[in-house]
Design a protein around this nucleic acid. Structure first.
Length: 489
RNA sequence: GCCCGCAUCGUCUAGUCUGGCCUAGGACGCCACCCUUUCAAGGUGGAGAUCAGGGGUUCAAAUCCCCUUGCGGGCACCA
């Protein structure tokens, strides 16, 4: 019987998780959900210096927003595998560290940071291997006691000096590392906290993680981990090193590339389902043509076998397109609900008076015109019951003059006033007929009215807009347009 | 500098493991046309990749092997 799939997302609370971090979470989550396994969130807070207050909440909030749920994690009842903060598991690490020291697999090192720095510098200049030189490897008990009186040591893992280590990665296959090139790395810092290498190996084993899926940048420390597993007598999990996500300049995604925190994308008006879909496609594909996947389809079709092996550049244009697809896929009421938090310029719309248009009625005319929720606000601001501010010269379309514009506004007014059935279809036929009477192209008449009704030359369809605005408001705006024309100059 | 990884249209990718169906497919973006009251959306078509370069192996290579180059990552008492 194959052991249950248990995967984990193990961020360190040092800031807001970015797209790359979340993509790792997505793959882990997808794998857990598609195999009926467990998805675990573990907080790697062993670096006391870099802790950022509130980061854990931001991480959890990001996961939650993306719709990734976890079976075990810092905010859930601990159970047999907890706690899920590494800072709360210090005793475990300490006990195991002592064990390794007793076995001779690890040793205390009293070298000062200054000495280490110097050592590295010298090595760099001499162009030799850079790494710990093993000074404290075989200190006598007497020497240790002497040093212990003045400094608290770190603990280093004793790496073999020769031979090779063959590591197996699910995606890349076997990779051979030369042991002599890997130094005795620190597993316990002088403040009593473990390093990543040590804590993650212990926890992955203790939490019965079956697949360690993490970013590519960990690949080079894999041999250290393998040796740790061996020294500890642990069975190796399956390692899956995921290709990383690059910025447009092909360097590792970072703040320099603008928005990186997933929550910034939320604020920019992206839908979580769109982001999830997009993130899944960064490094994974099903076949040569599928790219729109619902959450369930993603879960159904995800396999590690189809994860790619090269880094991917994050393309905001494609994300925007995909977000547009998801927006158009929403029902009117769903879209209205999604848009509402983004309305501020046209706050007067939200506080609509009874005869003001309802957001749900407006939504269909902007649905296929927005790529993000945030764009909606600007696009619908003219629906509010306020006087439109615009340059009256916009009322004069290309090829026509001021007289035409005035004629159009003057003649259309009584016609619309008389219209009893103020709906899109009726307005359409009425105005078309009127254009013929005026011996003008319908488009010319419409563009004058478009500006009068919306204050802009680019807007949602005219007749729908008029119907939503209502007869009274539409007439009022034509009157305002006439006034503006008169006061021109 | 050393080590590891990666390498198909500008970008995401299919195809690589199991050579021939690939005169390399799809998508985003771009261009044109159609639809059309503007803008979108939609439809149709197009430009865009000598499969990083060079050597092999083979009847046949994007696919297998070697080298080179480029890019990325690592070489912390950071994760």
């Amino acid at each position: 019987m194959t052991p249950k799939v248990r995967v984990r997302f193990a961020p360190s609370p040092t800031g807001e998780p970015h797209l790359g971090n979340l993509r790792t979470a997505v793959f882990n989550w997808l794998y857990a959900r598609s195999t009926g396994g467990d998805f675990i969130v573990r907080i790697e807070d062993t670096d006391q210096q870099r802790l950022v207050p509130g980061a854990v909440n931001t991480i959890l909030e990001s996961l939650h927003w993306l719709g990734l749920d976890w079976d075990e994690g810092p905010d859930l009842p601990t159970g047999q595998f907890g706690p899920y903060y590494q800072s709360q598991r210090k005793t475990l690490y300490t006990v195991i560290k002592d064990l390794l020291i007793t076995q001779g697999a690890a040793y205390e090192c009293y070298c000062s940071p200054e000495r280490l720095q110097e050592m590295r510098q010298t090595q760099q200049q001499a162009k030799t291997r850079v790494g710990y030189d093993g000074k404290c490897r075989d200190l006598s008990i007497a020497d240790q006691e002497k040093s212990a009186a003045t400094t608290s040591p770190v603990v280093r893992f004793r790496m073999p000096d020769e031979g090779t280590t063959t590591c197996t990665d699910y995606i890349r296959g076997d990779i051979v590392f030369d042991n002599s090139l890997i130094d005795d790395f620190v597993i316990m810092k002088s403040d009593g906290y473990p390093t990543y290498h040590f804590a993650s190996v212990i926890d992955d084993h203790a939490m019965e993680i079956s697949h360690v899926m993490r970013a590519d940048e960990w690949l080079s420390s894999l041999p250290r981990h393998v040796h740790l597993y061996q020294a500890l007598g642990y069975e190796l999990p399956t390692f899956v090193h995921l290709p990383i996500i690059l910025g447009p300049d092909r360097s590792k995604l970072s703040k320099r590339h603008g928005a990186t925190s997933i929550l910034e994308y939320k604020d920019a008006g992206f839908l979580p389902d769109a982001i999830l879909n997009f993130l899944a496609l960064l490094g994974w594909s099903l076949d040569d043509s599928s790219e729109l996947f619902s959450r369930d389809q993603l879960i159904d079709s995800f396999t590690i076998d189809r994860v790619g092996d090269s880094a991917a550049v994050f393309d905001i244009d494609k994300l925007s397109w995909m977000n547009g697809v998801y927006i158009r896929d929403l029902s009117n009421s769903q879209l209205a609900t999604e848009i509402e938090p983004f309305l501020d310029v046209s706050a007067d719309l939200a506080l609509a008076t009874p005869d003001q248009p309802d957001l749900v009625d407006i939504v269909p005319v902007i649905k296929e015109r927005i790529k993000t929720l945030r764009e909606a606000d600007e696009m619908i601001s003219f629906f509010g019951d306020h006087e439109l501010v615009y340059d009256p010269s916009l009322l004069i379309p290309k090829g026509l003059d001021e007289k035409h514009a005035t004629t159009i506004l003057d003649s259309v007014y009584p016609i619309l006033e008389k219209t009893t059935d103020f709906t899109t279809a009726t307005i359409d036929t009425t105005l078309r007929a009127h254009a013929i009477e005026l011996e003008l192209k319908p488009g010319q008449v419409f563009s004058v009215l478009r500006v009068a009704l919306t204050g802009r030359t680019v807007a949602p369809p005219l007749f729908e807009t008029m119907e939503i605005l209502g007869q009274a408001q539409s007439l009022k705006r034509i009157r305002q347009a006439k006034t503006l024309m008169e006061n021109r100059k």
